[in-house]
Design a protein around this nucleic acid. Structure first.
Length: 223
DNA sequence: AGCACA
């Protein structure tokens, strides 16, 4: 029929009165269920208003979102979805593992806030760090079946940033913060305001793939 | 109806 499959979904028939920021955010929430989103572009220029581009890391995510959201009522208007005619720059340049700088500025912001404290037992840091030996024998954080407002994530890919996790978990009510663990790229903690809210996020994002190879495992953190 | 930011 029309355009060849690609990573980018062309969205049209959008309500033109919705502010650009809000539009992108809503699109992000709506489409992130289909996979990792690298970027969303929406312009309010005369030619480009009412349209947007959602750039997925995986083509499959793009395809599934087109199937799944075609005609979806969004701000009272049915979404009209197709593949984009041209592929996004991020994709053609193979900068696929991270959101674009612009996207990061837009939704990221909280790098600093999110990276800060970790719930790991404070290790006596007697300054004899003589080089190569990475001190990895801190009690590895573990998971628990007991409900907890703090989630424990494992099997995260190396490229994971707190910003990516924030964007993912942000969409659930009660989200407080993401905490990365120094020297462990593969695990993280995500805190919510209540156990009910953490449970909702756990269920929704269980097995979510940040990259095609890593399905994250979510459980409750130990109390 | 309209396929792009930097």
């Amino acid at each position: 029929m029309d355009v060849a499959p690609c990573h980018t979904v062309y969205v049209k028939n959008l309500d033109e009165s919705v502010k650009k920021e809000e539009l992108k955010k809503s699109l992000y929430y709506l489409f992130s269920q289909f996979g990792y989103i690298i970027d969303i572009v929406a312009l309010k220029t005369p030619k480009m208003r009412g349209q947007a581009f959602v750039v997925f890391q995986d083509i499959n995510s793009a395809s599934n979102s087109i199937r799944g959201m075609q005609g979806f009522l969004f701000y009272k208007k049915p979404l009209v979805l197709s593949y984009s005619k041209r592929e996004a720059e991020e994709i053609t340049r193979m900068k696929v593992s991270m959101p674009s700088k612009k996207f990061r500025q837009m939704y990221g912001a909280d790098q600093a806030a999110a990276v800060a404290p970790t719930p790991i037992a404070s290790e006596p840091t007697d300054g004899d760090t003589n080089g190569k030996e990475v001190d990895m024998d801190v009690d590895a954080p573990t998971s628990s079946k007991v409900a907890n407002q703090i989630l424990f994530l494992k099997n995260l890919p190396e490229e994971t940033t707190s910003m990516m996790l924030s964007m993912l978990f942000n969409q659930f009510p009660g989200f407080k913060e993401v905490r990365l663990v120094p020297n462990r790229h593969d695990i993280a903690f995500v805190e919510f305001e209540s156990e009910g809210q953490s449970a909702a996020a756990l269920t929704a994002l269980q097995g979510f793939k940040i990259t095609p190879s890593n399905a994250m495992e979510i459980s409750y953190a130990n109390k």
